[in-house]
């Protein structure tokens, strides 16, 4: 994933804020971001809008590299934001860094 221009690391959460295998919403000026945490405690940040009909991905089911949208069960790849076959579409992803318990996301300045 390429690092978007004019972005900086911002602290958004602690790991404990995000339920394992689930998600939390972060309200930012540019809109809602979904923080999603899988069983390996990897955290991903995606826009909180499903490419299908805008479902809130933070309420989805997380497993491995996938989040399943809560509205119609589309499967979105956490790493690239791509909808998995047979669905098509893409959602914007944001770089995430963990420092111990602290969660940082690279967001617009």
């Amino acid at each position: 994933m390429s690092v978007p221009e004019n972005t900086v690391w911002k602290e958004v959460a602690t790991l404990a804020d995000i339920p394992a295998l689930g998600g939390r919403v972060v309200a930012t000026e540019g809109g809602e971001i979904a923080l999603l945490r899988n069983e390996r405690d990897e955290v991903y940040a995606l826009d909180n809008r499903c490419p299908h009909k805008g479902g809130p991905l933070a309420e989805g089911t997380v497993s491995g590299d996938t989040v399943y949208c809560p509205l119609h069960n589309w499967r979105i790849d956490l790493k690239h934001g791509q909808a998995r076959d047979p669905d098509v579409g893409c959602v914007r992803t944001w770089p995430v860094r963990l420092e111990g318990e602290r969660v940082f996301v690279r967001l617009p300045e």
Binding site: V8, K10, E11, V12, A13, V26, A27
Partner: peptide, 13 residues
């Protein structure tokens, strides 16, 4: 139910 969204902390690095 995590009703409230998280907010971005002021501090950045």
């Amino acid at each position: 139910i995590h009703a409230q969204p998280l907010r971005v902390a002021e501090m950045t690095i």
